[in-house]
């Protein structure tokens, strides 16, 4: 076999390249370690600066890049909740119109996420001043309209303070959930019946009717930080 021929020009260029490729001298390990620590500080500082650039206020919830218009919630609701002889009326919940809304999708037979969410939101509401409470509402939309009648929703919500509940029938419910990116599906239970598996986010809608951020149920337990988010959104709308 003949070895590949190398032309003189190639030899010269590769020799030049190799002679120019100087390998840098190794650094003392402690210098490298110090620079590594600085680089991590720079990285995390840069990330912090990026988030502050997106929003000067350190929101606890996950912020929408641009505020999204919140789809209106139209359905049946009990208007005189807690009173004898409740009246069910068609309702379009007032999203925007100067009120800040915490909107949550759930169902009354939910064993964990829904009661926890509503309890946390009530805790936030109670931590507000009366003036703030007047400009804030908690809105609950049932994802189980077959079983959650307006009366049942109203009596369920009575356990959790002053939330407003709405029953939205299919297919309007599917369209509404889709517009918020909420998923839900019926899951059969072993002993019969079913439960609803669903997205556990709570959406904060500002006084101008725009979705500003969302919290996961795991975040809602931090009342102080959730309240700060609400106050900031209230002040800005």
């Amino acid at each position: 076999m003949t070895p590949p021929q190398t032309t003189s020009s190639q030899t010269t260029s590769s020799q030049t390249a190799s002679s120019e490729t100087k390998v840098p001298a190794p650094r003392p390990w402690y210098v490298s370690a110090l620079v590594a620590a600085l680089a991590v500080l720079l990285l995390l500082g840069g990330v912090w600066a990026y988030t502050r650039l997106r929003s000067p206020f350190p929101y606890y919830g996950t912020l929408y890049d641009t505020p999204q218009p919140a789809a209106s919630v139209t359905g049946l609701s009990v208007t005189n909740s807690g009173m004898v002889g409740s009246v069910v009326t068609p309702t379009t919940a007032a999203l925007g119109a100067g009120k800040t809304t915490a909107l949550f999708f759930g169902f009354t037979r939910c064993p964990d996420v829904c009661p926890a969410t509503l309890a946390y939101l009530e805790r936030v509401r109670q931590a507000m001043t009366p003036a703030e409470q007047a400009k804030f509402q908690v809105l609950f939309v049932s994802l189980d309209p077959d079983r959650d009648t307006p009366q049942k929703i109203a009596s369920y919500l009575n356990y959790f303070g002053k939330a407003q509940g709405v029953q939205v029938r299919e297919p309007a419910l599917a369209a509404l959930a889709r517009s918020y990116g909420v998923s839900y599906v019926k899951a059969p239970l072993p002993g019969g019946g079913y439960q609803i598996n669903h997205t556990s986010a709570t959406f904060l809608i500002d006084g101008a009717g725009r979705r500003r951020l969302l919290w996961d149920v795991t975040q809602l337990g931090n009342t102080a930080r959730v309240l700060n988010d609400v106050r900031e959104v209230m002040a800005g709308s």
Binding site: Y50, T51, Y59, G61, T62, Q219, R225
Partner: peptide, 11 residues
């Protein structure tokens, strides 16, 4: 948590 959740999708 907020720094993480607010950078998870974009950054």
């Amino acid at each position: 948590a907020s720094l993480v959740s607010n950078t998870a999708s974009g950054l």
